[in-house]
Write a protein that binds this DNA or RNA. Structure first.
Length: 848
DNA sequence: GTAGGGTTAG
């Protein structure tokens, strides 16, 4: 029972501080060692609420092994895919403590609450209430009950409690209190319609026209991401003659933050607040900080210093929100400094601080640093909670450390933290990406067994891993189950389906599916578009129509064939787009080997791709570097510079600078554009390594394709200097992994020229030289290049991904009179000044 | 009235 639940502080002693391996961990660690672990202090002071829910996972010896009460489906969002609902559910499960300053309720209310747990439904609960009626003292007790029932997700009991209380309350002001509490509770439960209903009734009943009910309703809308509605209520309260107070302003600002409203809009509200004589407080600033999450990290830093100027102290929310902003733009070193600063200011990092920074490291691909933070967290005596365990799990899965991942699951269990849908999705994706399909099946079975409901992310993940593995029959089955579950597809699920179509050559169907998802009200995002742009012209093959009659494989069983043949019946039941998806999956399942392609004319493709860009503009979808890379790659597939120019024009509309660099290099105006190019390269290097290398590959390829080989080489060397391929380059070995064919060829020339200068300086080459090459297409390109220039390399017999040669043979070849000429790359289009530059002898050796 | 997590493109 709740009263016997030990306080949350009954955690095991912090693990012994020990040496942290990463440098980055060190600074904060030293600081933490000077301060006693703060967590027990925080939690001993908490009153233990009478909640049967699992605690914040702080206990290693769980005292509550009872299963989670399942929140009533009707009162929660249909799925937890959205950020807001996930966050909400986390709060609910963790039974996050509210600051209990206003616990003016009587002990009787606690008794009612304790008994309410046994009530099967709201009718039984009402009977309990009636039994206590005379002893419950007014709105304070009822408000307490409402909040606590809300915390437990007991929506219908809260409704019963509210009705019971309002009917018995005579005072208008007390009824108003009940109403604003109820609105707030409904808002917290994500049940914004009920909140509105309560509000309207209260207003009509003559007790709802208060700043409190309006503020509560603003907040309710805000929590559900309904920012426009929140602002509407905010405006309405003004027209009703009510003056918004600090809480009203904070609520409306926060609703904007949650909905991702532009900073300028929120700033106007802030100005309005000041001009109405309402002084902002810490929470105002904390919410303003949250508005900066779209990448406005400098604005966030400015806000924090403005807090200082105004004499408003920063708290752990301030720092956590600031850190989130900083981490989301990938500035992990700055995040680390901020974390040290907060500790120095005696604002101690908590589990949210760590999970924010850990997530930042993980997203930046710095998985080892992320693991270092976990160590540091342990040393600081901060126990992991569900979010943290899930983060740790996903890091191990990304690293392919499956044993460690399973140990995380075991540890979660021993701490009394049940695996949730996030945990399962991580496991499904982790195993699936490694092709461990047996494990995928086991995990999915377990998920069903323990009744963790799959959500749209679960299905997207499964469809994705099965499709990528070529297990189309399994993907189809998952898709059908998804449809049966009645979940609404989202942009990621659609993008995944579109990607599968694209990768199998069904580009036309992919475009149709894109249209249909838009019609369904699902907004495609930049990933959706990048997927399709990237697909154009990738694979050549036979023309293959979706509606073609597909021979049914007898062995495949009836299911697939039924889907393929029951066209009209299916059309009535499903949307036609789903029907098509099923058809294609079925088709892929029975005929995996077919390399299909729905386009056979490049002009048709060009028009289609231009149409896509137009749509992107219309939908105001902001392109990113991946889009730029995809456009450049599409240019590389154009037969003429004129066609490519049409695509480049799109690039210009998206980003003038990237266009300027690409266009300048293509047209031979390297001199005028090179400084801009260098600054662009520096910026690209700030991105994660695979994005950066993809961009360098795309730019080099298009330059190589249109004969700007010297330009391609300079770009590739800039990439090499910035270490975007992380490849080996030494006198004896050149590694070409992850390079595109243009980049690799430009690189080979640069490497051979460099070796030539080594030879000419009188140094001896190693006995054996080698080049490490990647996949088949790249290997063929390099093979062609080497034989074309007469370089004496051949495929190693022991390793077919490697070209080798004797040092002496290469030396002889390099010293030959004609070799330099074939090694030096030229641009077909050069401005006069470039030509002079290229002919300068000091270009050798190359700027490495 | 305030903070953290999972899926898609390259």
């Amino acid at each position: 029972m709740a009263s016997s639940t030990p306080p949350h502080c009954s955690i095991t002693a912090p693990s012994k501080p020990h040496q942290i391996s990463t440098n980055s961990s060190h600074k904060t660690l030293q600081h933490n060692q000077q301060h006693p672990p703060h967590l027990p202090r925080r939690f001993t002071s908490h009153k233990v609420s009478a909640s049967p829910l699992p605690s914040n996972s702080l206990s290693k010896a769980p005292t509550f092994l009872s299963p989670l009460p399942t929140p009533k489906k009707t009162h929660l969002s249909p799925d937890f895919s959205g950020k807001k609902s996930t966050r909400f559910v986390s709060k609910l499960h963790f039974n996050r403590q509210r600051s209990n300053l206003s616990t003016r309720h009587s002990p009787v209310a606690e008794d009612v609450l304790a008994q309410s747990a046994a009530a099967i439904d709201e009718v039984q609960f009402q009977v309990i209430l009636m039994g206590f009626e005379g002893r419950l003292s007014g709105s304070e007790d009822y408000c307490f009950l409402l909040r606590e029932l809300g915390n437990r997700g007991e929506s219908s009991k809260a409704v019963a409690c509210y009705e019971f209380a309002v009917q018995r309350e005579r005072k208008v002001s007390e009824r108003g209190k009940l109403a604003s509490t109820m609105i707030s509770v409904m808002g917290r439960l994500g049940n914004v319609d009920s909140a509105r209903f309560v509000f309207d009734n209260a207003v009509n009943g003559g007790y709802g026209n208060t700043v409190y009910t309006y503020s509560a309703l603003i907040s309710a809308y805000g929590r559900s991401g309904l920012c426009k509605e929140a602002i509407g209520v905010f405006e309405m309260m003004k027209t009703q003659g009510l003056r918004p107070n600090l809480v009203s302003y904070n609520a409306v600002i926060d609703s904007c933050a949650k909905a991702g409203v532009k900073f300028e809009v929120v700033n106007d509200i802030y100005d309005d607040m000041l001009s109405n004589g309402v002084d902002p407080d810490r929470i105002t600033f904390n919410s303003m900080l949250a508005v900066c999450k779209g990448g406005l990290w400098k604005e966030a830093m400015r806000l924090v210093s403005e807090m200082g100027i105004r004499g408003i102290d920063q708290d752990v929310f301030t720092y956590n929100t600031l850190l989130d902003v900083i981490c989301k733009v990938g500035k992990m070193d700055l995040a680390f400094d901020i974390m040290s600063e907060m500790t120095a200011k005696n604002v101690m990092p908590n589990v949210v601080t760590y999970s924010t920074v850990i997530d930042g490291f993980a997203k930046a691909g710095r998985l080892e640093d992320a693991l270092g933070m976990f160590e540091e967290m342990k040393c600081a005596g901060i126990a992991l909670d569900r979010v943290c365990y899930n983060a740790l799990l996903s890091i191990f899965l990304k690293l392919g450390r499956f044993k460690d991942a399973l140990n995380v699951c075991k540890e979660m269990e021993s701490c009394g933290i049940r695996k949730d849908v996030v945990t399962y999705n991580a496991l499904l994706g982790g195993f699936g990406k490694q092709g461990k399909y047996d494990e995928v099946r086991q995990v999915f079975d377990q998920m069903r067994r323990v009744r963790v409901l799959p959500n749209v992310l679960t299905y997207s993940t499964l469809i994705d891993v099965y499709s990528k593995g070529g297990l189309y029959r399994e993907a189809l089955e998952v898709f059908k189950e998804f449809k049966q579950a009645g979940l609404k597809a989202d942009v990621v699920l659609y993008s995944g389906l579109i990607d599968t179509l694209c990768k199998n050559g069904f580009v036309k169907s992919a475009v149709l599916l894109l249209d249909e998802m838009t019609k369904e009200g699902i907004r495609p995002n930049v990933v959706t578009y990048n997927t399709i742009i990237d697909a154009f012209g990738r694979s050549a093959g036979v023309d293959y129509l979706v509606d073609a009659i597909v021979p049914v494989d007898e062995k495949s069983g009836g299911k697939t064939s039924m889907i393929l043949t029951c066209d009209s019946a299916a059309r009535n039941l499903e949307g036609s787009e789903h029907n098509r998806v099923m058809k294609i999956f079925g088709q892929l399942a029975v005929d995996k080997s077919r390399n299909s392609k729905e386009f056979n004319e490049s002009s048709q493709e060009l028009l289609c791709i231009l149409g896509l860009f137009q749509k992107m503009h219309e939908l105001e979808i902001k392109p990113n570097v991946v889009t730029f890379s995809a456009i450049l790659n599409a240019c590389s597939r154009c037969n003429s510079l004129e066609d490519a120019s049409m695509l480049l024009e799109e690039l210009r509309l998206f980003d003038d600078r990237v266009y300027g660099v690409a266009h300048g290099l293509l047209t031979g105006s390297r001199d005028t554009i090179w400084i801009q190019a260098l600054s662009l390269f520096d910026e690209v290097k700030q991105l994660d390594i695979s994005t950066a290398s993809a961009f360098y590959n795309a730019l080099t390829d298009v330059l190589w394709h249109f004969g700007q080989k010297r330009g391609a080489q300079l770009v590739v060397l800039e990439g090499k200097n910035r270490n975007v391929w992380e490849n080996v380059w030494s006198t004896s070995c050149l590694d070409l992994h992850l390079m595109s064919s243009g980049a690799a060829r430009a690189m080979v020339h640069a490497w051979l020229l460099n070796i030539r200068s080594v030879v000419l300086e009188g140094h001896e080459l190693p006995k054996l030289l080698s080049k490490v090459v990647g996949d088949g297409a790249l290997k063929r390109a390099i093979e062609g290049l080497l034989s074309g220039i007469g370089a004496p390399f051949h495929l190693a017999e022991t390793n077919l991904g490697r070209f080798i040669s004797q040092g002496a043979a290469v030396t002889t070849w390099l010293k030959k009179s004609g070799t330099l000429q074939v090694l030096l790359l030229q641009d077909v289009r050069t401005q006069p000044e470039n030509r002079r530059l290229d002919q300068r002898p000091n270009l050798q050796p190359l700027p490495l």
